[in-house]
């Protein structure tokens, strides 16, 4: 059964097209990961899903409810844990949770029971009665997560839930998300950490340029790729020109399907080859063209390769490219209501 159904979402920020026809179906009780570089449109999509932003066109359904027409019913069903954690530093954690409970119209006893439960579940008992202003990043994130879960939503939406967190907080949050999923909560999370999505999600969608460019179970996506992955360097740190020359040589070799220059890894070359038998030929051809082989490694396809295959660049490169184009000031203005 489909819990979230986003249809052909388009959203402009001024002249910038943040979402370019994004469509997504998230099955009930799944842990769904949105993977993509910063600036790909993940946050915009999640903000539209959570009724914080309206799309220029497109449709949003949450368990059959048209969230654009009946936002209040949609809001009741979802818990949203935003990327930027906004706590009131004057309130204590408990007071914030009480406020949150009242905004979701919980009865007092139900609200206080839930607060107790989440406080012990997220190990917040020691500091829940201290003011939020004194919390560390991990504490803030845990409290924010508790606030999102307070009304027992059937859908939990998390935007980059573990960015900048210590390892302990991160694994505590991962553990909680897995438990929630097994108890039937649908979870949609965005991340630009490959390992986070890989570790948690049973379904993923890769987002790039405001659209979904690939979706499925991580293992299936990797299997679909086929071929062997090879990373090759002619020296430890190469440059663009040299990498381009080497790329041309490699592309002419039979059995080489694809060659991509990986800027983030010192202009190494990422190849997809038919099989192991191609490897000796790579060495021969390069030596003939007077290039050394500094290193050559072979691996199974990873999610990064899935991304690479779909977009022709690595996740890291995409992030670098987008970072220079983003207008953060405009974005923060758009995010302000």
């Amino acid at each position: 059964m489909v819990l979230i159904d986003l249809q052909n979402l388009i959203k402009f920020y001024g002249p910038v097209k943040a979402l370019n026809g994004l469509s997504l179906k998230v099955p009930k009780s799944s842990l769904y990961g949105l993977l993509g570089p910063n600036g790909a449109g993940k946050t915009t999509a999640l903000r539209i899903l959570c009724t914080l932003l309206s799309p220029d066109s497109g449709k949003v359904f949450i368990s059959g409810i048209d969230a654009l027409k009946d936002p209040r019913s949609a809001r009741k069903r979802l818990g949203y844990v935003a990327q930027e954690i906004a706590l009131d530093k004057i309130l204590t954690g408990r007071e914030l949770l009480k406020l949150q409970g009242d905004l979701y119209h919980l009865q007092n006893n139900e609200r206080d029971e839930q607060i107790e439960k989440l406080t012990s579940r997220l190990n917040m008992a020691d500091w829940i009665d201290r003011r939020c202003g004194s919390y560390s990043g991990g504490m803030r994130r845990r409290l924010d997560l508790a606030a999102g879960l307070l009304h027992r939503p059937e859908l939990l939406v998390l935007d980059e839930p573990t960015v900048g967190l210590d390892i302990e907080s991160r694994s505590a949050i991962w553990q909680l998300l897995r438990e929630l999923k097994s108890s039937g909560t649908t979870i949609l999370l965005s991340s630009h950490y490959l390992e986070e999505v890989e570790a948690l999600a049973d379904q993923i969608a890769i987002i790039d340029g405001g659209r979904v460019i690939a979706e499925g179970a991580p293992d299936d996506l990797k299997k679909c790729l086929g071929g062997d992955r090879v990373t090759l360097r002619v020296r430890e740190f190469s440059d663009e020109d040299e990498a381009q020359i080497v790329r041309k040589i490699l592309l002419n070799i039979g059995g080489v399907q694809q060659v991509v220059i990986n800027r983030a890894q010192g202009f190494s070359l990422n190849l997809v080859v038919d099989g192991e038998e191609v490897l000796p030929r790579l060495r021969e051809e390069l030596l003939e063209a007077k290039f050394d082989l500094f290193s050559l490694s072979q691996s199974r396809p990873s999610l990064d390769d899935v991304y690479l295959q779909a977009t022709g660049r690595t996740l890291m490169d995409a992030e670098l490219a987008i970072a220079s184009k983003r207008d953060l000031k405009l974005e923060s203005k758009q995010a302000m209501r």
Binding site: T51, L52, R72, S73, L78, A86, L103, Y104, A335, R337
Partner: peptide, 13 residues
């Protein structure tokens, strides 16, 4: 500070 978003995402009557 984005706190308003916390209020706006809640199903306020």
């Amino acid at each position: 500070f984005g706190f308003l978003n916390r209020l706006l995402v809640a199903p306020l009557y």
